[in-house]
Design a protein around this nucleic acid. Structure first.
Lengths: 273, 273
DNA sequence: TTGCTCCTCACGTCACGTGAGGTGGC
DNA sequence: TTGCTCCTCACGTCACGTGAGGTGGC
């Protein structure tokens, strides 16, 4: 039976840590003095402490370790936990590698000195959106505003009639690359707060969760090209690929003050192989 | 100017997070109502928020991000921070891969059903130890106790004479593989609490920090072979190699009760290439 | 009046590290 | 008496999430 300081020196574990393990019941001293509160350990407790350290080293939390120290555990159960942990670590490594790729892409951009370009690109996960939408085919580029306005008007009236309410900014989904300017298919979508019936013309459904890369464009719609170019470059440089219709989210859109408009352009993405 | 809830919906960032960013001064609303305390944001603040999210995504802490949002920062400075971060992430990935290797080794052991064997192996970093030591060459295996005891006696008397005190368990360093049993060179070392002069026979120096793989052996010295075998197997299976003299740390060693002796066997290791 | 949004505390997270203030054995 | 070791609080860490309890505008 030795005192906590000696046990700490033997095990190269701090006194504070040993007290912590006592407190949470992971490793209780063989004896505690009623009067002084001194903790006394036995050298034979070292294997248990070592097991704790070894499991911690494999990435388990103290809470997970506690049951693993019980004698009742079978090798098979231990194997399961290890397999789960392995998957977790693998996923983590994949994430960190993606992070590394993003950092590297950013550094390359700085070297090319056009770093300003992608300074505002964000990768994020958009939650599922319950929406009502109407799809139109727009003959030429010049007719986009008219067609979209008409489509949104139709969706809004449908939504109001069924007693639902807007639940965020409206958006358009474009089902072909941004370079296409003839016979474009656009889906005018309004986020709503409750499910309502749809019709032939107005679909009601939930847009699934998606990982998107986005950029916020300030000002009139005229110069979206730069934004698209930047996003597509980012997607390429970071090892992703476009995975679906891109979206325009009309965050601020007052027709009388287009200079102050704010539009978010979102490209759904997936890891390229 | 919009309310916090709208800004949260636009940015897909939680209201709580926005309040947090306000509190730490990362992103303050354009206006706050004196009476109600309501926070009002402008859509033009989205780019700043996006920059925050993008940098957070690269692994920076909020504290690190704050100065990076200042206009005064040059691309070169940003590049430096990114390079540092890249190194950090790379190091992290290396660590996680090592962890993965350890998990995999453990799983292989379970499959082979001799998992009990390495259950107590620990990888840890031993701090530098100030020690006094005497090296002896031991002709045959049978003479180990006698030679070691003599060596320790000599070191202890030297240490006492110079007024230093023991500062942890004594240990032996073995300068050749454990399989060698003739003319073994062993260094009997005693940890001391202050520097003292050495002699021809008793060296005083600091053992450097070392990463070691260790196991605690309970009971008499006779069956160290199993422990050595287990450690060497672990080292091999986890992609390490032996990097120096192995150590025996005599944690509990009462000659009259050898059955209760506890000895830690430590192998210094380095990553194998 | 009823929802809805917003507010400010206060506490919890994970595995400890770092004092503050005080006690027992040589 | 002086060090040394040990003790028990209490607070901090990082980036928020989760109530509790209360207020303002439709």
């Amino acid at each position: 039976v030795i005192k906590i300081g000696d046990f700490a020196r033997l095990s190269h574990v701090s006194v504070v840590t040993l007290r912590h393990y006592d407190e949470i019941g992971l490793l209780t001293p063989v004896a505690v003095d009623d009067v002084t509160g001194y903790r006394y350990y036995a050298v034979t407790q070292l294997p248990r402490l070592n097991r704790i350290l070894a499991l911690k080293d494999l990435g388990f939390s103290l809470e997970q370790i506690a049951p693993m120290l019980h004698d009742g555990i079978t090798p098979a159960q231990l194997g399961e936990m290890l397999t789960l942990k392995r998957k977790e670590v693998e996923r983590h490594i994949t994430e960190e590698r993606a992070r590394l790729a993003r950092i590297a892409a950013r550094l390359r951009n700085i070297e090319k000195e056009d770093h300003m370009a992608d300074y505002d690109v964000v990768l994020k996960t958009v939650p599922p959106l319950l929406s009502a939408s109407h799809t139109v085919t727009i003959p030429t580029n010049g007719e986009v505003p008219a067609y979209l306005n008409a489509a949104f008007a139709e969706v809004y009236s449908h939504v109001k009639q069924r007693g639902a309410k807007e639940n965020g900014p409206c958006l358009a989904l474009w089902h072909q690359p941004a370079a296409v300017h003839v016979n474009e298919e656009a889906e005018a979508a309004v986020q709503i707060d409750r499910p309502i019936p749809g019709t032939d013309r107005v679909m009601v459904y939930t847009l699934p969760v998606t990982e998107v890369v986005s950029i916020v464009h300030q000002g009139a719609f005229s110069d979206f090209r730069q934004a698209h170019a930047t996003l597509l470059e980012w997607i390429d440089a970071n090892g992703y690929r476009v995975a679906g219709a891109y979206r325009e989210v009309y965050m601020q859109h007052d027709p009388s003050a287009m200079a102050e408009a704010a539009t978010e352009i979102q490209y759904p993405v997936a890891q390229a192989v």
